[in-house]
Each structure stands twice: as C-alpha cells, then as structure tokens.
C-alpha cells in the first residue's frame, strides 16, 4: 500500500489532487481512498489531505500516520511545520519549489519547480504538476493520471496543457 499526505494552504487545490490521485489509482485497477483533514475552514490556512492506494482492498479508516509520499504544494509551509513527520523509511517528500528548502536538507526530499512548469503551460495552479510527480512516485501509469485529471478538470482547463503539465511533473521523478 502507498500512503500519501498532501500539505497545502486551503484554496490551492490539494483536496482535488488527492482525489485525482485516487481516481487514477482506481483506473489502474487498485483499491483507493481519498480524504481531507478539516479544521476550521478558511482560505489560506494550512490543510492536509490523504490518498491511499493499495493492491488489497482498503478497509481501514484511520488517518495516514506514516506516509510513503508527502507532497507539499506550498513551500512556505516547510517553515511552519515538520512536513516530513512520520515519513516511512523509504518515503520521499516532494516540494513545489525551485530550490530545496533549507529545512528539508537531510530528508529524502525532491524540489519540483511545479509552479514554474504550470505557468509555462498556461496553468494558474501547480497542483496538477505535483499530481504528476506524486503519480510517478506512487507507480501510477502516466496515462491514468492524465485521464483522471482531464475527466475532472477538462471543462475548465485546456486538456492538452493539462496533459503536458502533468507529464512534465511526472518526468521530474522518472
């Protein structure tokens, strides 16, 4: 089972991509689960979301405590909390940043210039680029993650840009 924890500020689309990763896992034939962690809701507040993907039927309903993949959509959060908390032995932290934040040195972490990539493809939000990277880290086929994203976001965003941005995020981990 792969367990994923998403860190973001409310409004950055973490809940959406946590669900899209699950959707892609479902398309790939896995058992999945996606759930946000809510506090008092307000735009800009730190929030978390979770995705589970497993080859066995997922029955558990406890929060993800030891994530295999941590995705940080907002690099400033790295200074506000320990985003690597509970990271599994083989786990990796993927942070949306042009360079590796000081606080993550010593952690198995990768900086992905997702916002830059998103802008290059005419997209406002970097969440889909990080979704591509998360899918690569989670072993989900690229086509499944692209299909899931286009199905859900294709009405609002250009499908080709979406596919290209996701592919570039995916390639960062290849």
């Amino acid at each position: 089972m792969k367990e994923v924890r998403w860190h973001a500020r409310a409004g950055q689309g973490a809940k959406t991509v946590s669900q899209l990763l699950a959707e892609a896992g479902l398309l790939a034939g896995s058992s999945v689960q996606a759930f946000p962690e809510y506090g008092p809701e307000r735009r800009g507040a730190p929030m978390r979301a979770y995705t589970r993907i497993s080859e066995k039927t997922i029955r558990r309903h406890d929060p993800v405590a030891a994530p295999d993949i941590v995705i940080v959509l907002e690099p400033t959060l790295v200074n506000e909390m320990n985003v690597a908390e509970g990271l599994s032995d083989e786990g990796v932290v993927l942070v949306d940043s042009n360079e590796m934040p000081e606080r993550l040195k010593g952690v198995n972490a990768r900086a992905i210039p997702a916002l830059k990539i998103a802008h290059e493809h005419g997209l406002k939000f970097s969440n889909v680029v990080m979704l591509g990277a998360a899918a690569a880290a989670g072993g989900i086929p690229l086509v499944n993650i692209q299909d899931a994203a286009v199905k859900k976001l294709g009405k609002r965003l250009d499908a080709d840009s979406l596919r290209a941005a996701i592919a570039e995020g995916y390639a960062c981990l290849a």
Binding site: Q19, S31, V32, Q33, A34, F35, Y38, I58, H61
Partner: peptide, 12 residues
Amino acid sequence: QDGFTLTHSEEP
C-alpha cells in the same frame, strides 16, 4: 454513516 470519515471520504 460516520461523519467526515465516510461523509467526506472518497471510496470506490
């Protein structure tokens, strides 16, 4: 059904 744990969780 359990609030949040099911009401707000996506499952297949």
